[in-house]
Computed example of a mutant assay.
Amino acid sequence: MPPNSPAAPDPPSPSAERARTPLGSALLRSIPGGYDITGLPLQVPPLPAESAPSWLRRLADRYTLTPQQILRVLGDEGRPTTLAALHAHIERNAAGITQHLRIPEDDLENLCCAPALDTLTAGYLQLYHHRAWQPSPASRYCPECLTQEPTAWAAAWRNPYTVICPTHAAILHDLCPSCGQRPFATMSWLGQVAEPWICPSRRPAPRGRFGRPKRGVRPFCGHDLRTVTRQPATDDRRPDPGPTL
């Protein structure tokens, strides 16, 4: 009798085929109805005239993550150390952010564009004082604006000449009354999980025996800036011009 022929191997399962091919993930995304499972479920579009840190904090708050964790989800492992680096990150990953959040690229460009007053300030100082100028990352704030929904920090609040909120006829605050820090003066807020109206600064470092700051991770302030007393802008109450240019 002729020897038995070897049994034919079982055909590979569809799941095994998808695991071996780079098209497996693409096949999984071919869902009827145009639903894209690569996008994040909660959309937080930037608001007009909003600053990039404000939008990133609002987005992180919706997911109960830190802004730094959101940046990693959106395609970059680096940690921006300056406001300019944050703008560069958004511009560099604009395509991925648009895909994940379904936000038009024009809205992302507006986040990174300098407000008109910043452009005028830089031009004035260059023309008449021969000085190069960059806006500080620190921001003033209007407590009443922070009570609005959705809560946003205006990019114009960073300009030293923006001292009054035209919407509420109130003087903008420069410091947090609890920690005494200027909001967004450093990039430490990237590691904070907080609502947009919470102070983004860390508390000052305690002093040691010889007046030197003690080492260690300082806690975040956590003060609710919506509760800060309103300062009406009247003729007999001049606003503090803030730090020198």
Rank of each mutant, 00 (worst) to 15 (best):
P2D: 14
P2Y: 01
P12I: 09
S13K: 15
P14L: 09
P14Q: 04
S15W: 13
L23V: 03
D36T: 04
T38W: 01
P41S: 13
V44Y: 07
P46W: 13
P46I: 07
P46H: 08
E50A: 05
L56E: 01
R57P: 06
R57M: 13
R58Y: 09
L65M: 13
Q69E: 15
E77F: 12
E77G: 12
R79H: 01
I90Q: 07
I97L: 00
T98H: 12
Q99L: 15
Q99S: 12
P104T: 03
D107W: 02
C112K: 05
L117F: 05
Y124N: 10
L125Q: 07
H129C: 07
A132H: 14
P137R: 06
A138I: 01
S139E: 02
W153L: 04
C165N: 08
P166T: 04
P177V: 07
P177E: 10
S178R: 07
Q181E: 13
R182G: 04
P183R: 05
P183F: 01
A185S: 07
T186V: 02
M187E: 08
S188A: 15
S188R: 14
R202S: 04
R203Y: 02
P206G: 09
P206S: 13
G208D: 03
G211L: 11
P213N: 06
R215C: 05
G222F: 04
L225Q: 09
P232G: 02
P232A: 07
D235K: 13
D236T: 13
D240Q: 09
P243V: 05
